[in-house]
Nucleic acid binder design. Structure first.
Lengths: 194, 194
DNA sequence: ACACAGATAGACAGATCGGTCTACCTTATA
DNA sequence: TATAAGGTAGACCGATCTGTCTATCTGTGT
């Protein structure tokens, strides 16, 4: 049946995403995904032509989940400065695992994945790129509301983007659980709120 | 002979570092390292007890090379603000591959490696952590010279660290070759030079 | 000249990889 | 109830992985 069909596909993607995020992609074999999910190998290759296709699906899934989570967090916040601050607060909750929606914190799945697939021509890397561009678009949108002028908004969005990526990296690699708080304070200073 | 002994070891580490940085660690097998370096397998296992030991050696080698490169770049610059700016200029040259000392730019080897070995208890991850802490110490040292006050210097060093990590990530994942220039401009603003 | 340390090539082992395929089972619908 | 689609379990394939081991060669110090 079609619904079960999608159920299996979804189960595979969610299981793979969880394992890939925790352990890295090359470190997780197809057989482990099958064992954990309880799905048969034939079913996997019925839905995906290869491991790479499964990886692409997990990246897209993570993108959708992340953006849905972020939109929910930002839903009731006024556009502009308040939303920009809310983004850093959301990242802080993510790093400190105060929000179960994203699961445990192991850094940015897209940064981690692009570390393993860094060929700019490959589909996996490009999926990661698209995600980052989506997030940057959100930052620019609210920077524009905050500042009203395009060039200044671009500059602010660039700075905010760097701070956000830096916070995620520092939160993971350096174990600095305050990284997003520091990023938010720096952002406030850049927006003239410090 | 003892010198040849070290020659082989060094050759193995440099070859492995180059391959690991370009392709990722799990994606490179021991046999490939041996083939490219022209060293016999027995010799490798004479110097390293396992692949993991070789990986640790490559991370340490990258740390040494990076710090030597940075120190050279900063050698003739006045301590404080000027050195902080020079750091971002150096990162810019790295991203745009204008300085052959670090080879091609594939993002931060330590970030990439910690993406594949993210268990906080494992030796490899801890080596990556130590590197980042060394760099942060340099930032703090010059922030202190620039500001003269410890708490403010810590805040500044934190902000600069986030901008630097963000620039490296943006330069790689988003292909933003201007990332370090933007980070530098933001840093200038934070230091009251904007 | 001889002994020995350390290098070489590469066979080999055992596990695991991604991916294919067979054979059987379950279930919804005509 | 018959049919057909899609699931299950898992054997199997060739390739590759890390790591061990044998056997041979080279070069240095005494």
């Amino acid at each position: 049946m079609s619904t079960q069909n999608n159920d299996k596909r979804t189960l595979l993607v969610e299981t793979a995403l969880d394992l890939f995020y925790r352990q890295g992609i090359h470190a997780v074999g197809i057989n482990e995904v099958l064992k954990v999910s309880g799905v048969a190998k034939k079913t996997l290759y019925n839905h995906f032509s290869s491991k790479e296709a499964l990886i692409v699906a997990t990246v897209e899934q993570r993108d959708q989940r992340f953006q849905a989570w972020l939109n929910k967090r930002l839903g009731k916040v006024a556009a502009g400065r308040a939303t920009i601050e809310a983004i850093f607060i959301a990242v802080d909750d993510w790093i400190n695992e105060r929000d179960p929606a994203l699961g445990p914190f192991r850094g940015c799945f897209f940064i981690n994945t692009s570390a393993e697939y860094s060929d700019g021509a490959c589909e996996i890397f490009q999926c990661c790129q698209r995600h980052k561009q989506s997030i940057r678009a959100v930052l620019y949108q609210h920077a524009l509301v905050a500042l009203g002028e395009e060039a200044a908004a671009r500059r602010l969005a660039d700075s905010l983007g760097l701070l956000k990526e830096g916070a995620i990296v520092a939160g993971h690699l350096m174990g600095d659980k305050q990284a997003a708080v520091k990023a938010r304070e720096t952002a406030r200073r850049l927006m003239g709120l410090g």
